[in-house]
């Protein structure tokens, strides 16, 4: 178990290293940051050169990368070209908002998709199943910005129940979470349905029924518990990608998250923030994946961490 975790950590380091290479060089394809940093007039050659050397952009690429890498080792992502703030601080300021939104979305998705998926599977082929599947389809094919805007129109503008932008309280979390959760629940409900169908066909479900326990015990305790594995995998992966991939929802709700931080940084060619933000998200992704893998052995005793789960 410990050996496995260590191996996975080494794995993580390798992944982060490769990503650092890719992000470092690809960021430099977005254009010269200096050219967008002077607001008025044509800057003098000297001014440009001075700014370059201040930002460290005059050094050879290999040296620049070396500095970046060295910073990574000490978890120092450098300072923003724009604000001069440490990138680490910028990220952590927004981390909470991002995580809150991702968790909120997943929470809403679970709340909707578990019952819908389970019912669909149990009542397979009936009207319930039909509505469940239509629901999934709508969830999957809905553009999420549209849903977000509709929610704002109804609940913020018309009814004035909930705030529509920013993140100052739990109330602010509700609409964006629903927006995110609805989209996610479409896919999740499908997944739950199909893994439930597979599990409900197993012989041990007949065994459970033959014990005379209640139908819901059979479905939840014996069925759903076994259908959980693919679901947790999916949610773990989703959590990772939600951290960076909620940009549209963040835009609609003016959400102070990391996704928007990176988008803004790209527009401003703020290299350290882009690099730091992407690397940070990558690390979180890998860590979440590791946690998901470790959780397998809790869910399914047949899987020993480090064996069979790779």
């Amino acid at each position: 178990m410990l050996a496995y975790v260590i191996r996975r950590l080494l794995h993580t380091i390798l992944v982060v290293f490769v990503i650092s290479l890719i992000i470092f060089f690809s960021v430099r394809l977005t254009g010269d940051p200096v050219s967008v940093m002077f607001s008025a007039g044509e800057p003098s050659k000297e001014a440009i050169a001075e700014l370059r050397s201040n930002l460290g952009l005059d050094k050879p690429l290999a040296i620049q990368y070396g500095i970046f890498l060295k910073g990574l080792l000490t978890l120092d992502f450098g300072e923003s070209f724009r604000s001069g703030m440490p990138v680490g601080t910028l990220i952590f300021e927004r981390l909470w908002a991002t995580i809150a939104l991702a968790l909120g979305g997943i929470f809403v998705a679970i709340l909707i998709a578990f019952p819908v998926g389970i019912l669909s599977a149990v009542k397979r082929g009936t009207g319930v199943d039909f509505f469940g599947r239509i629901f999934s389809l709508i969830g999957i094919s809905f553009p999420n910005f549209w849903l977000g805007i509709m929610l704002i129109l109804v609940f913020s503008v018309q009814l004035q129940w909930l705030p529509s932008s920013g993140f100052e309280s739990i109330k602010h979390l509700i609409l964006p979470s629903i927006t995110l959760g609805m989209i996610l629940s479409g896919i999740l409900a499908r997944l739950v349905r199909s893994s439930m169908l597979e599990v409900l066909n197993q012989q041990y479900i007949s065994t459970a029924k033959s014990k005379g326990i209640s139908e819901w015990s059979v479905i939840i305790k014996h069925g759903f518990r076994n259908a959980l594995l693919p679901t947790v995998t999916f949610l773990g992966m989703q959590f990772g990608s939600l951290l960076g991939g909620t940009v549209i929802v963040e835009q609609v709700f003016s959400w102070p998250g990391i996704g928007r931080l990176i988008i803004d940084a790209i527009n401003q060619r703020d290299y350290p923030v882009i690099q730091g933000g992407v690397i940070f998200l990558a690390i979180i992704m890998v860590v979440v994946n590791l946690l998901v893998d470790l959780s397998y052995s809790l869910i399914d005793p047949r899987i020993k961490a480090g064996r069979g789960s790779q």
């Binding site: 012989q203 041990y204 459970a208 029924k209 033959s210 014990k211 005379g212 518990r225 869910i299």
Partner: peptide, 21 residues
Amino acid sequence: KVRGKKISMIFQEPMSSLNPV
């Protein structure tokens, strides 16, 4: 009330008749 109490059943596939978790 009958299942397991009055009448019990065992199946063909012992490998898959028990819940793995």
